[in-house]
Design a protein around this nucleic acid. Structure first.
Lengths: 132, 132
DNA sequence: CCGTATCCAAGCCGATACTG
DNA sequence: CAGTATCGGCTTGGATACGG
């Protein structure tokens, strides 16, 4: 078997992915755009500085402590945020977007801002569907 | 009570939304970027013509009939696709993106294409996390 | 302060069988 | 062909109590 030299470092497209890689890409996007993740990331993005757990918990209204913990852990595992523990009393934990996380948010926020402008349309579509 | 005339049709921003509207916007995005929804929408977007249920089922590998049915119903309820039933034997059902759905996909696909290029980084981040 | 552990209820998903 | 109906296992999330 002969190894063929790659002429240029090809840009990855959808079809270049293995099934595992494809699944990872889809799941990271799915998690990022999940209601709690999106909200938490948005908070971190607009603050643009390290945030304590309790600050995030305050701003992401309606999320429970348990679910926020899980959400942030997953975002950390996906490489979108960092989690820094300070050995103090009382303990302090700070979260911040990584470069990758900021890059993703930069691309996701236009979609968010656009969907916000479409809310009236979404409401009308929902009503029309439910009326049948 | 006096009706105040709106000077200009304001562009909606995040803060103009009621809690219900905010929740609808977040949930529609969350659903759209869900792994199955994203895949199904992508298939419809690239075909750019009405697709039968079974065609979509073939292309969205790994999804069960039940879950695909649910997924498509939700997308229809969100106003992103249309569902047309033909009174034939055997029955035929066709799905197609709405204008709103196409507009959303047009904005979502760049994010998808970008995340695909970041898969190596995602894999490294995951490995680093799991190694601790 | 920032979690983890535990219990419990609700909902999701696959498999299977059946219908217009 | 494109569903609906049903059942059972599994995951998920809230509430609460406790720990470093």
């Amino acid at each position: 078997m002969v190894t063929v030299k790659q002429p240029t470092p090809r840009v990855l497209t959808c079809d270049d992915l293995t099934d595992d890689q494809d699944q990872m890409a889809r799941q990271v996007l799915a998690r990022t755009f999940g209601p709690w993740s999106m909200w938490a990331l948005h908070v971190m993005y607009s603050e643009a500085r390290p945030l304590r757990f309790s600050r995030i918990l305050e701003r992401v209204e309606g999320v429970s402590q348990k679910v926020l913990t899980q959400t942030l852990r997953t975002l950390e595992r996906d490489g979108l945020i960092t989690r820094t523990v300070f050995a103090e009393v009382p303990p302090r934990v700070e979260y911040e977007l990584t470069t990758l996380g900021r890059a993703l948010l930069k691309r996701a926020l236009p979609v968010w801002n656009w969907i916000v402008t479409q809310v009236p349309k979404l409401e009308r579509a929902r009503e029309a569907y439910d009326a049948r």
